[in-house]
Amino acid sequence: MSEKKIKNIFVNGAISPAFIADSIAKHATKTAIGGHSIFMGQIRRDEINGKFVAGIDYTAYEELALSQMDAIREEIFLKYPLNCMHVHHSLGMISAGEICLFVFTSSAHRKPAIEACNELVERIKAELPIWGKEIFEDDTHQWKENI
């Protein structure tokens, strides 16, 4: 019996608009799908104490995060009648304006896709060992809170 392969959700660097567009385009031939829900997390250029965020440097305890994401994936598929689920999270330095998280769910109807997507995003933020260090334009930094 072969071991189950755990999907790698991590991408080095920002998630490109072309990657997102290609992911969406690949679903055009899947005619059992009637609804998609997409969440894209984008780095904000927040002003904190008079300094502007230039980007976020993401790190993760990858092995644990992937194992936990696999368990979350299984739970979401049991809870919602999804056709597809795709999760991609950036690692490394992501500049303000770039996409760092892409969650894409599909189902026969819109409601399960929307609810599953929302739950996935909340659980990724709350449960996975992924950390972001805000890098300011003056090259100082601080650890970011997951809110």
Rank of each mutant, 00 (worst) to 15 (best):
E119D: 11
P112F: 05
G35Y: 07
S106V: 02
E74R: 13
A28C: 07
A113V: 02
L82Q: 03
H88F: 12
I72A: 01
L64V: 13
E75T: 09
E122K: 14
E134P: 05
Y58R: 09
R110H: 05
E122D: 15
G34W: 00
L64P: 00
T105D: 08
T59E: 14
N49P: 06
A96E: 10
L66A: 08
P81C: 03
Q68P: 00
S90T: 10
L91H: 03
W131H: 02
G92I: 04
I33V: 14
K51G: 11
F39P: 00
N49Y: 06
F52D: 13
F136N: 04
R110F: 07
H27L: 15
C100P: 00
A32Q: 15
Y80R: 03
L128T: 08
E62N: 12
T31W: 08
F102T: 02
M69L: 12
I124C: 05
C117R: 01
G92Q: 06
A96N: 06
G34Y: 01
A65Y: 01
K133D: 13
C117K: 05
I33P: 00
S90K: 10
L91M: 13
G55Y: 12
Y61K: 04
L66P: 02
I33C: 05
A126L: 07
T105C: 13
E119L: 12
L66M: 14
G41W: 00
H86E: 13
P81V: 00
M85A: 13
K125W: 11
G35H: 04
N118Q: 12
S37L: 04
I130D: 09
P129N: 01
E122P: 04
R110D: 08
A126M: 04
M85R: 08
E119P: 03
G55C: 12
Q68K: 15
A65P: 06
G55N: 12
G34C: 06
K133E: 14
G55L: 10
S106H: 07
E63G: 04
V103L: 07
C100N: 14
M69V: 03
H86W: 12
G41Q: 04
K51T: 14
S95I: 12
K30S: 12
I43R: 10
I99C: 14
